[in-house]
């Protein structure tokens, strides 16, 4: 574990790029990793974990005991305060039967650094459990990250899993996000991705949901704001494989700039006559009526755009 000086240095750099100060002041972290070093580790009640430092990052195994219900989120941070060639994180999370927990995970890449971040995560949400995974990314404006992250989730009978990937501060960099879920009987999977790309950022998001159990549900929602010369692609695939399952893909992408390229690819496959999967996709500039409404209240066009975009990314 690190000394207070190391923690203070990391805190300063992460707060500079927008991480809430309160996280450090109130010692909110259950796990804080800088590159491949564990800086803070503090157990959460009902949560067993194993964290191993590797040459390029960390490997974690987390087991939430059945029936565990936590009011406060389990708070984790995987970041880099300095440039390093590559950071690799591998994780496995099992949420035991009937548990109800929320993980708040911060990705913090300090101002000016460059790195490749690779992440693989396996999630298993057991019967009647409820698990929310909020993955919040903070990058500096002069940071460049190549992020490659894959999540594979199994959602058991009557279980609920919500995964939110949010990058609202700084540059996105070159990003590939793949989220896959197998959903059992009456299970629910909700995937949300909210990102803003600037300059020559490249964003690729792929959500794949297999609704395998009767009456299972899946929602895949993306909100991508593409500015300057950003290239962004969203692929949403939902497979309705079981009786009375329901899926929906909701993709809305806003472009601001002449050299932006944005693509949305919804794939809807239904293998059962009682299953229903729908999709809606919209790509375009900021809605004119929204803009004019805020301008009629005295906001400038730039202020109005900012309000609308921040609302969409919330």
């Amino acid at each position: 574990m690190a000394t207070k000086n190391v923690l203070d240095t990391v805190a300063k750099k992460f707060i500079q790029i927008g991480l809430p100060k309160d996280l450090f002041e109130r010692n909110r972290f259950n796990l804080l990793v800088d590159r491949n070093k564990i800086i803070v580790r503090y157990p959460a009640p009902g949560v067993r974990s194993e964290v191993i430092e590797t040459p390029t990052g960390v490997k974690t195994k987390v087991y939430v005991e059945p029936g565990t219900k936590l009011e406060e989120p389990v708070t984790l941070c995987f970041g880099a305060a300095e440039t390093t060639e590559v950071q690799t994180t591998e994780g496995e999370i099992v949420v035991g039967e009937g548990a109800d927990v929320k993980f708040q995970v911060y990705g913090a890449m300090a101002e000016g650094i460059k790195l490749k971040h690779k992440n693989k995560l396996k999630v298993r949400v057991e019967k009647n459990a409820r698990f929310e995974f909020l993955d919040l990314h903070y990058n500096g404006e002069d940071t460049f990250v190549e992020l490659d992250t894959e999540t594979d989730a199994y959602i058991g009978e009557n279980a609920y899993f919500r995964s939110v990937f949010k990058q609202t501060r700084g540059r996105a960099g070159k990003v590939r996000i793949v989220l896959k879920a197998q959903v059992d009987k009456k299970g629910v999977a909700v995937f949300e991705t909210k990102m803003i790309g600037k300059k020559d950022d490249e964003i690729y998001v792929e959500d794949v949901i297999h609704l395998n159990g009767e009456e299972s549900r899946g929602i895949s929602k993306s909100r991508i704001i593409a500015v300057d010369e950003t290239k962004a692609t969203f692929v949403g695939e939902t497979y309705g494989n079981a009786p009375r399952c329901r899926g929906h893909i909701d993709c809305s992408e806003v472009i601001r700039g002449k050299d932006v390229t944005v693509k949305a690819v919804p794939v809807v496959v239904v293998n059962d006559e009682t299953a229903k999967v729908t999709h809606e996709a919209a790509i375009g500039s900021i809605d004119k009526k929204q803009l004019e409404t805020l301008m009629a209240r005295g906001l400038t066009e730039d202020e109005a755009v900012d309000v609308i975009v921040q609302g969409m990314l919330r």
Binding site: L294, M295, A296, L299, G311
Partner: peptide
């Protein structure tokens, strides 16, 4: 539009726009 609003003119639309992620309180404060 902004210049007119700053002079003290505003307009309420027949079918007002909807805003994702903005609360009523934030909207009124804006």
């Amino acid at each position: 539009i902004t210049e007119r609003a700053k002079l003290g003119i505003t307009l309420a639309w027949q079918e007002p726009a909807r805003f994702e992620g903005i609360t009523v309180e934030e909207y009124l404060k804006l």
